[in-house]
Design a protein around this nucleic acid. Sequence first.
DNA 1: TCTGGGGTCCTAGGACCC
DNA 2: TCTGGGGTCCTAGGACCC
Length: 422
Amino acid sequence: MMALVDCNSFYASCEQVFRADLQGKPVVVLSNNDGCIIAANKEAKQIADIPMFQPVFKIKDLLKAHQVTMFSSNYTLYGEMSQRVINVLRNFSPHLEAYSIDESFLDLSGLSHKDLSAYGKEIKEKVLKHTGLPVGVGIASTKVLSKVANKLAKKIPENEGVFVIDSEAKRIEALQKTLIADVWGIGRKHVKRLQNIGIYTANHFTELPLNWVRKNMTVVGERMWRELRGEKMMEVTNHSQPRKAVATAKSFGKKLEKLDIIEEACAYYISEVSEILRKQNSTASYLQVFLNTNYHSDFDKQYHPSITVKLEMPTNNTFVLIKEANKILRKIYKPGFRYKKVGVCLSGLRSENYVQTNLFCQEFSGKQQNLMQMMDDMNAKYGKSTIFSSSLGIRKKEWELIKEERSPRYTTQWKELLKVQG
DNA sequence: TCTGGGGTCCTAGGACCC
DNA sequence: TCTGGGGTCCTAGGACCC
């Protein structure tokens, strides 16, 4: 058996932990640039018409009328709270897979003598006590079934946040209560295809012939199908694998037309992603740079160019990558458009230790390596962007994100600690 | 005026190799 | 009338996830 532990409206809950005054009140968290809603707590969801990804400007009046508290996203805080949850969960199973920022799978094999429902409750209570965050616990024999159990744990109030699928009868009953759209791994397109042939619940889906599933939904669909029927296809994996690609692409705080400002944003993103690469001791073989105008605008001319290049030598050197990115940018940039976003993506990642260099290669000379190391050390010690490439520029960052309602970074900055009045 | 960001896996088809 | 067989690697696009 395994458990899926999932934090309830994670980002919104994180904000509430530090704001006792917001208990029981509606809270939402906004995306970058305060563009749309990406998390809403229970109270906010109860207010009609607050679907996720709704642009905030369209429902500003509604939010105001219901006195919904809005927060810009504060990923530093959420990342650290996530670690705290994981630390608590490790006490319940040594074999844990941190699946996402707010979800973990726990391998419970070897605990068959335990009352798993009681164990689930214990997990829930410990996490709440130690972090202040509410979670739901789903327990079953496969990953997909524990996802189903987790949904039911939260959806049906009598379950009080914990649900166990431990018999064939319970499995069938759970699947009958689960809409096909709510099954993990079955997205919008497949839901439509399935509804077209009269399949509406997870249970219906498991009754389809395997060859239909295989043909229309590839092996991915087949895995879901088998897992829903109780056949284990996916293991709980302990070790976190290194990433295969690192990308960043954020919308500018305002539309930009000039190349030099876009170049500075691009150089900034490159320094971010190459630092991530160095942290996991990887180098990139490919670099992609793309530009976007505003997709949503009927008024603006649209242009979404992109170029991917294979680098002469796999590298994680910020300066080399900025130079290459600028070359691409100058190729794809055309004046006369109002650009909304520049993005970079490093892929073809491989370990630093296996890079095949050539005679003319400078980047892996000790000098360059030491320079990168020094930069990373200083920025870690004295704060982000203490030293940086001059390509980033030193003027005001016109492209910077808008974050008007960001909460303090309570847990990672001395200056922003929670104040308690006695 | 204002609409997010960062990933994974799978498949088909083309290029290329012997 | 007749034109091989068996591979690998790469890329773009689709589908999905949080």
